[in-house]
Structures are given as structure tokens and as C-alpha cells.
Amino acid sequence: MGKNVSPPIKVLCYILIVFFLFIYLFPLFYIVNTSLKSSQDYLLYPTSLTTSPQFSNFVTAWKKANFGTYVWNSVLYTLVCTLASLFMSAAIAFPISRKYVPASRFLHFLFLCGLFLPSGMIPTFQLILGSGLYNTKIGYMLVMTGVNATSVFFFTGYFRDIPKDLDEAATIDGCGYLRYLVQMVIPLSKPAIISMGMLTMIGVWNDIVSSTIYLTSESNYNITRGMFVFQGQYSNDWTLTAAALLIVAAPLILVYLFGQKYIIDGVMTSAVKG
């Protein structure tokens, strides 16, 4: 839109922006407010501003929802799946971008297919069940890890920008391939790695579908599923549910606050590539 916008339109624009800000912020605000209320206060005045914040709700929710176990599971799943996914994608994208392997083009096509093929939820389940990995951490992580086609393309694009002279210099120095990949290529494409890493992390942390399908023991639950189950058990204790929800969302919000640029960059690029 041009710079010379007439005042009434400007006002209209501000009204729209503020209206949608309300729609987006009100639910979050409501959750924060609820999480700080005593349950008595909530039952009497559910929508009033809390006057004496009950931070103990968070402690109670943490204990009752058994987050002590789940949070470590989630950290484990998130770390392992993210690192594995990133490494696998990078290890595939780099040779493709350099045409170091035969049939690079075919590989490229193969991964492109992944974007359009139907999801294989049921055969995957049969696979995990058949291999005895059902309801195990390993099985779940195998499912949650993935060479995502978008990250392969994203990386391919970035790796092309790394001068090939570097490859040559590395071989002359006698630097091995794996070491070169891990110590040079990946650090050089930090923005891409961070973008994809954050998106993958968010995806794994938030997963509810796969954890519902594959994890049945409480000792294997991730925190998202733990929160979901907790909400089912204490379906009308909204003060505790809100607190539990914020505990689950807190790391996401932190990551978002600090890595917004990378996340949005990743979304833009992957969408355009896809």
C-alpha cells in the first residue's frame, strides 16, 4: 500500500489490526489470568482480573500432571528427533547440492514425491507393531524423526551458496567427509539449520497424534500428551489446566521470542519451496 493513505482508511486499518489483536490475545490473556486464580475465585468470578495471583497453581499442576517425568521424555524426544532429522537431511542435501552422488536428480525427485504422497499412518503403525517397538521410546522417536522433504530442499539451496573451493581445501588438508560436513558445512549454514531445527523442535514438542497412537504407558508420555490427559482427568479444574497448558507452552513461547526471525524465515522458505 502506498504511503499516502487517507486518514479514514488508516483508522479503519488500525481498528482491524486491534480487533484481530484482541481475538488473538484475549484467549492467551484469559488462560494466563485463569492460571493465576484460586479455584474458588474462578468459580465465582471466572472472567474477573485476578487480584492475588496463585503461583502455587503451577506447582500443583506440575505435580498432579506428573510433568516431572514427561518433561524429560519430551526433552529427549525433541533433542534426539531434531538432531537426527537435521543430520539426516543435511547428509542427504549436501551431496545432492554438489552432485557428489550418482542420480542426484532422481534423489531430488524421490524426496519431492514425499510432499504429495498420502500419509502412511496405518502401515507405519503396522511396521512399529510388527517390530515390537510399539509403546517404546525408540519406536516413537523413529516415527517422529524424518527426512522432511522441505528441509532437504531448504538445505540444498543453502549448501549451494557454500563455495566449492572449501571442499577442495578440506580434501587437500586431509579432512574427512563426515568431519567436514559436521564441522564446516553445517556451521556455515547456521541460519538454515536453526530455522529447520526450530521448526522440527516445535513439531516434535507439540506432537499429539503420534504420541496418542504409539505411546500408551505413562512413563513414555511426552509432555503434550501428559497435558492432554491431565485436562481429560481434571476436565473442569480450569485453573490447573490453564497452568499446565502454560507450562507446556512456555518453552515454545521462549523459543519463539528469541528465534522468531528464524522460525518465520523457515516457514516462508519451506512454503515457497513446497
Partner: peptide
């Protein structure tokens, strides 16, 4: 003891009874 929300019990039984754990 493992507890499951009532709404989920049927599907959890279904999956676990036969996973044999």
C-alpha cells in the same frame, strides 16, 4: 497402576491388551 482417561480407555485397552504389555 496405569490410569487412562475414561474417554480413551477402550482404545487404550485395545492397543495394549494385544501388544501384550
Amino acid at each position: 497402576v496405569t490410569e487412562v482417561p475414561s474417554a480413551e480407555i477402550d482404545s487404550v485397552i485395545q492397543t495394549r491388551i494385544i501388544a501384550g504389555d
